[in-house]
């Protein structure tokens, strides 16, 4: 079954090992994978470098299924002793850089990591910047909040709109989420900030239609050009298209059948289905050709309600296999 395949691939891609599944039901396996994805993290080294003032590094981990600005309070506590008044009040100027590229904070951390580090492993070397916010390339935190609240509010706004968009793709309307009670809406967002899977799933369940009622699977495909340095703006093409959970024949939509219909030039039809020019991955694991898309969605969607899938061409795949030697 496709889920078990995903699990093997996930293990290979260095997710925490899963216990033996021989006697477990499918749904236990699924919830284990879901929890492993939710709990998985990346190692970071975040350096704050202000000439004549501070050169200090934070070592830690970030959840893949979270957002950069939600980590800023932690960084603020760590770095505040060495910052002056200006930096400690201009919270709208905080941003993160990797290899001289400002990171798009509105995307989930795991997705940015997988784009920045094609080898999908190792410590992520980042720089914290506290001035000269690059408003041309990343979204300003645009709101009237004061203090460190500005970061969480900005993420909440982006996250909520993405969840609504995802809801619309699935249901053909954003009604399910817009008619949640005030308590449920608050609990949903709090589960995101507290990184609480059970709290998150409890509300997600209420806005997700049953399989037979899903119109389309919320999907974003990131086609990565094979360059040496990846610039999220320049080198990634993002494709979204209506993809039903079922093929026109009535069979379940698989990863391969979906890609073959959305990007046929990269995924020419092949019998049996086989990737030729490019390979899709999510959460640093390659997705098998026969993975059933609706199942993949229920275990592998990010916390913004989308399956963010990276598509890498041949050159990148070759390089990845030698990846260990590059750094």
């Amino acid at each position: 079954m496709s889920c078990t395949n995903l699990q093997h691939k996930a293990e290979r891609a260095s997710f925490s090992p899963l216990p033996s599944t021989t006697n477990e039901s499918m749904s236990d396996t699924k919830s284990l994978i879901t929890r492993n994805i939710w709990e998985s993290f990346v190692k970071v080294e975040i350096t704050l470098d202000i000439p004549h003032m501070v050169h200090e590094t934070y070592y830690g981990t970030l959840h893949r299924n979270s957002y950069l600005p939600l980590q800023f309070s932690k960084l603020y506590e760590y770095f505040k002793y060495c910052l002056d008044e200006t930096h400690l009040s201009n919270f709208d100027q905080w941003w993160i850089e990797h290899d001289l590229i400002p990171l798009k904070w509105h995307l989930p951390i795991g997705l940015i990591y997988d784009i920045c580090l094609p080898q999908r492993t190792g410590t992520w070397h980042l720089s914290l910047r506290v001035d000269k916010f690059p408003a041309d390339s990343i979204i300003p935190y645009q709101n009237l909040e004061h203090g460190t609240e500005i970061w969480t509010k900005a993420v909440e706004n982006i996250w909520l709109n993405q969840i609504k968009e995802s809801c619309f793709v699935q249901c053909g309307s954003a009604k399910p989420i817009m008619s949640l009670s005030k308590e449920d809406s608050t609990a949903f967002w709090e589960a995101v900030t507290a990184h609480n899977l059970d709290g998150y799933k409890a509300i997600e369940k209420k806005i997700t239609p049953s399989l037979s009622n899903i119109r389309n699977i919320p999907l974003k495909l990131y086609i990565q050009q094979a360059n040496d340095v990846i610039d999220i703006e320049e080198d990634i093409e993002v494709i979204q298209a209506p993809v039903s959970p079922f093929q026109s024949s009535g069979a379940s939509q698989t990863m391969f059948s979906a890609l073959a219909s959305v990007i046929p030039e990269l995924f020419p039809r092949h019998d049996p289905p086989r990737y030729t020019f490019a390979v899709p991955s999510i959460h640093a694991a390659i997705i098998p050709e026969d993975a059933i898309l609706a199942e993949l969605y229920s275990v592998g969607s990010y916390l913004d309600g989308f399956l963010h899938i990276l598509i890498e061409g041949e050159k990148t795949i070759d390089r990845r296999e030698e990846g260990g030697e590059i750094n």
């Binding site: 979204i139 709109n161 309307s173 954003a174």
Partner: peptide, 12 residues
């Protein structure tokens, strides 16, 4: 869009 959600600025 659809009087319900705002896509991100970088959506195509």
């Amino acid at each position: 869009l659809h009087n319900s959600f705002a896509p991100n600025g970088d959506e195509v």
